[in-house]
């Protein structure tokens, strides 16, 4: 049997080719796909997140770790589906209307995927109606909004208000983030969650959908 701590290392160091080939080997050896994800892959991304928060990793290191995670996940996800393993949650992600900043949003999306969530990424310049329609269509339990401009922040309140009026109100949570966003602002507009960084976003998403970390 392959020592899968090497998969953990490959993800943490961003070696996507090795991560993918180790995932394939583990599957060929009939290792339980859920345990590969829970014991090695998610812990690797959690560690990457911790290093990012501690300023040991910066965006480049975090991005390549997330890419390695995705490369391995592409092979494992179909097996999880075959075994009827549900994702931790379904999250609709996007940057709010009028705002084209997407580096942070993409990082949050990758980290959420790394944390076991299914992500529906709507891109940038997303209207409140588009978020809610996508959440309904995909049966999402969370919407994650990103805004980097003080001029586009008010668009977040519009999404929160629209969700409250939608049939999914109560079950569908809204989490917000982006450089100018604070917990105070999240409270003020009635958003359910906030984090100032991508790894915190995963913990916050877990809290909001009621799952515990692996």
């Amino acid at each position: 049997m392959t020592d899968l701590s090497t998969l953990y290392d490959a993800i943490l160091s961003g070696d996507h080719k090795t991560a993918r080939s180790l995932a394939q080997t583990a599957l060929d050896e009939n290792t339980d796909p859920k345990s590969i994800v829970d014991k090695y892959m998610i812990p690797a991304m959690d560690e990457a997140g911790r290093r990012f928060e501690a300023n040991v990793f910066y965006v480049p290191e975090l991005l390549i770790a997330a890419r390695a995670m995705k490369a391995a996940m592409e092979l494992i996800r179909p097996k999880l589906l075959e075994n009827h393993v549900e994702p931790a949650g379904r999250v609709v992600v996007g940057t709010v209307q009028g705002d084209l900043h997407d580096i942070g949003k993409n990082l949050v999306a990758s980290m959420l995927e790394g944390g076991g969530f299914e992500v529906i990424d709507l891109g940038v310049d997303v209207s409140p109606e588009q978020y809610v329609a996508a959440a309904t269509e995909h049966g999402a339990n969370l919407i994650a909004l990103s805004a980097l401009l003080t001029t586009t922040m008010p668009g977040m309140r519009a999404v929160v208000d629209l969700v409250k009026q939608s049939p999914a109100a109560g079950d569908l949570k809204v989490m917000i983030g982006g450089a100018p966003i604070t917990q105070t602002y999240a409270d003020e507009i009635g958003a359910d969650g906030f984090s100032d960084n991508a790894s915190g976003a995963v913990n916050e998403a877990r809290r909001l959908v009621g799952v515990t970390a692996a």
Binding site: G14, V59, P60, L63, I64, R67, I103, N106
Partner: peptide, 10 residues
């Protein structure tokens, strides 16, 4: 773009 640029550097 930053993401593809980072991947290219690696």
């Amino acid at each position: 773009g930053s993401e593809n640029g980072i991947y290219a550097l690696y």
